Computed example of a mutant assay.
Amino acid sequence: MPGGWKRSTETDGEKLSYEPRTEESGHAELPHSPAGTPRSWDGRQSGSGDTAPHYIPEQPRRSLDEVVLPDTVRQRVELALDLVAHHTLLYDTWGLRSIDPHRRGTALNLYGPSGTGKSLCAEALAHRLGRPVINVDYAQIESKYVGDTPKNIVRCFEAAREHGAVLVFDEADSILGSRLSRVSQSADHAVNVSRAVMLQQLDRCEGLVVFTTNFPRNYDAAFVRRILTHVQFELPDLETLHRLWEQLLPEALPVDPGLDRHALARESAGLAGGDLVNVITGAAAVAARRGGESGVVTAVDLTAEIESARRARDEVGHSPEPGTPAEDTVRRLSQAEVPGSLGPSL
């Protein structure tokens, strides 16, 4: 279990939780993630005596001012913040609860192509609100042990409530996928149970939950209705690309003094901010290999990496085709993973 925490158990042996050790025990009250730790999670899947997962809040490191977005996207993000900041005014003072009586918290969905800043924006939302953030992805929730996946879902919501944290689910299409209408094995039933528990936790949650996804079409309709605002992240336009080039090139990076950011923006049309990070990193490596007086990043270096990034977008990987049944995009447990199974059928 995480250092500085103690395990507490219910008498029925079913519910497990973790509580911070007090100062009397000689440990700090709250654990701190190491600098640069990308995920707010520690521990292993429960079952077979392993420690159950625990979700640790982190302080967001990036502010919304550091996130470069097209104006249309930023306006939607600001609206999402208004929904959180003025929730009491909207629902209690202005009476929106009369038409939406069951909504306690706010759920947001950030969707769009990879590399457009969804996860970064989710962290920046927590920063703006002055709250810690708990990042959760599919691997931290899914378990091969029957009943553990729903328990993991409940645990992360409990952790967010305890610490007043913003709960962020990356790759949310894996978690919010459609329930299966044709249940043919125990694994199918487990998928439906997990979806039902997630719906229940969303209804009970009084804080902010942010989902990010590259595949929004995979969401179950019941989740779409419970999410208050959906913000589409778009590939950057020419003006946004120029701002990205201005911000992403580190001051310490040796670059050709005549580097034209406007030309780079035109050259990189169709790429996302995440692509530009890879472009700059690759070009910097080329310059480092040359070394000496030639060890500066040039327009030629960047243009070559831009073309490489564009080829990768075109030739490597693909999104599901429109109309692909959601059931075909949901991971099913293999027969060997189903408890009681004798392994793959011959």
Rank of each mutant, 00 (worst) to 15 (best):
G3S: 14
E10R: 11
G13P: 02
K15R: 15
Y18M: 05
T22W: 13
E23Y: 15
E23N: 12
S25Q: 10
H27N: 12
H27S: 12
E29T: 14
H32M: 15
H32Y: 14
G36K: 02
T37H: 12
P38G: 02
S40I: 00
G43S: 02
S48N: 15
S48W: 15
G49Q: 03
D50R: 15
T51S: 10
Y55I: 01
E58W: 08
P60I: 00
S63G: 06
D65I: 08
D65C: 05
L69D: 00
R74Y: 04
R74P: 06
E78H: 07
E78G: 08
L79G: 09
L81M: 03
L81D: 01
A85H: 12
A85N: 15
H87P: 05
L89V: 11
L96R: 06
S98Q: 14
I99P: 07
R103W: 04
L110N: 03
Y111N: 13
S114A: 12
G115E: 03
G115H: 00
T116H: 02
A122M: 05
A122T: 02
A126R: 00
L129P: 04
L129R: 06
R131E: 08
Y138S: 09
A139Y: 13
Q140H: 14
E142F: 15
S143P: 04
K144V: 14
V146S: 10
G147D: 07
D148A: 13
T149N: 04
P150V: 04
V154W: 07
C156H: 02
F157S: 00
E158Q: 14
A159D: 02
R161H: 10
E162D: 15
G164T: 02
F169M: 00
D170G: 09
D170R: 07
D170N: 07
D173E: 04
I175D: 04
V183Y: 03
A187H: 02
H189N: 15
V191F: 06
V191T: 09
V193C: 11
A196T: 12
A196C: 06
V197S: 08
L199N: 03
L202R: 03
G207H: 06
F211M: 11
T212W: 07
F215D: 15
R226Y: 06
I227D: 08
H230V: 10
D237R: 01
E239T: 09
H242Y: 10
L244V: 03
W245D: 02
L249I: 13
E251T: 13
A252E: 14
V255P: 05
D256C: 04
D256S: 06
G258D: 05
G258S: 08
D260Q: 09
A263R: 10
A265P: 01
R266L: 10
R266G: 11
A269H: 08
D275C: 05
L276W: 00
V279G: 04
V279R: 02
G282E: 06
G282Y: 06
G282H: 05
A284C: 04
A285E: 13
A287L: 01
A288L: 12
R290P: 04
G291C: 05
G292E: 02
E293N: 10
S294A: 14
A299C: 07
D301R: 01
E305C: 09
E305S: 08
R311A: 08
R311Q: 07
D314Y: 11
S319T: 14
G323L: 01
P325C: 01
A326E: 09
E327L: 06
D328W: 11
T329K: 07
R332M: 05
A336Q: 07
V338C: 06
P339H: 00
P339K: 00
L342C: 11
P344V: 00
L346P: 12
L346D: 15
